[in-house]
């Protein structure tokens, strides 16, 4: 059995129009701050924190989030996920999210920064019922190295598996292993350094929304050197990818999309989540 470095179990339900925790449990190097209500919509926001400041050699983290019918929740982090060198064993984080019909869960973590000689794996497993809405973003950076070099980490892998009513809906498997890939080359990172993604699943998805988001992405890219794309998924929903040269650029573009989606799907203008 895995011995978890940090564990978090959180289940949320709707109580008379306000989303509240039914169960919160955490142990080890994982914590959530008290819930925050940014507005009077009843949607709750939880900030995850890693008191240790980063992931270390062999660390194992686990999260289990459940959104009951009608629950509306934002889950984010308090700062970038930092993975320090892992000389013996990779660091790992596994998140299982269960969304009941009529729930809304958005998981919007800060960027991932892998340090020199770090190996990190992350797996998100999302099980949705039809009628639930899920929104996810991530940002992969070229990491950090004492000599200022980029892509000095050994390997970073991000896996997203999403099921709707038990059927596979999205499978996304990204791995950056700079030593054995032509990371900079045509077809791969193509000279860009940061990779941003958004995956959204909701019955409410329309071609109009996808077109509007494409327009917003073009507008917020401000003619800078970025490469972006948006496309509809095999289930109602869409994915966005952005290749850019800074975290800020990707955040700006994804935030604009997030705002538009919140307005259209929840009738809400989201509060700024960033805390620094």
């Amino acid at each position: 059995m895995t011995k978890w470095t940090g564990e978090l179990i959180l289940s949320l339900e709707d109580r008379a129009g306000k989303t509240v925790a039914r169960n919160v449990y955490f142990q080890g190097a994982f914590k959530v701050m008290r819930p925050i209500y940014h507005d009077d919509s009843g949607k709750v926001c939880y900030y995850l924190l890693n008191p240790g400041g980063g992931y270390l050699d062999g660390d194992r983290y686990r999260m289990e989030i459940t959104a009951e019918p009608g629950a509306q929740v934002t889950l984010t982090t308090q700062g970038a996920t930092k993975v320090y060198k892992t000389p013996k064993d990779h660091a790992y984080q596994e998140t299982t999210m269960s969304l009941k019909s009529g729930s809304y869960l958005e998981y919007l973590p800060d960027p991932l920064i892998a340090y020199k000689n770090a190996t990190y794996r992350q797996k998100n497993i999302v099980r949705m019922e039809r009628g639930a809405t899920f929104l996810y973003t991530d940002i992969l950076t070229p990491g950090w190295s004492p000599d200022g070099g980029q892509f000095a980490f050994d390997s970073v892998r991000l896996i997203n598996e999403i099921y709707v009513d038990g059927e596979p809906a999205v499978f996304d498997n990204i791995r950056l292993s700079p030593a054995d890939q032509r990371v900079g080359g045509l077809g791969f990172m193509e000279g860009y350094t940061h990779l941003g993604s958004m995956i959204a699943i909701g019955e409410q998805t329309t071609d109009n929304l996808v077109d509007a988001l494409h327009g917003l992405l073009a507008e917020t890219s401000e003619g800078d050197q970025v490469k972006f794309g948006i496309s509809r998924l095999a289930v109602p929903g869409f994915s966005i990818r952005i290749l850019a040269r800074s975290t800020g650029k990707i955040e700006k573009m994804l935030n604009a999309c997030h705002k538009r989606i919140s307005e259209e799907w929840l009738g809400l203008t989201p509060a700024s989540l960033r805390k620094y």
Binding site: G187, M189, L195, K227, G229, S231, S239, R241, L243
Partner: peptide
């Protein structure tokens, strides 16, 4: 990533 983006 680049190939996938060009396909989108």
């Amino acid at each position: 990533p680049g190939l996938e983006l060009s396909q989108m």
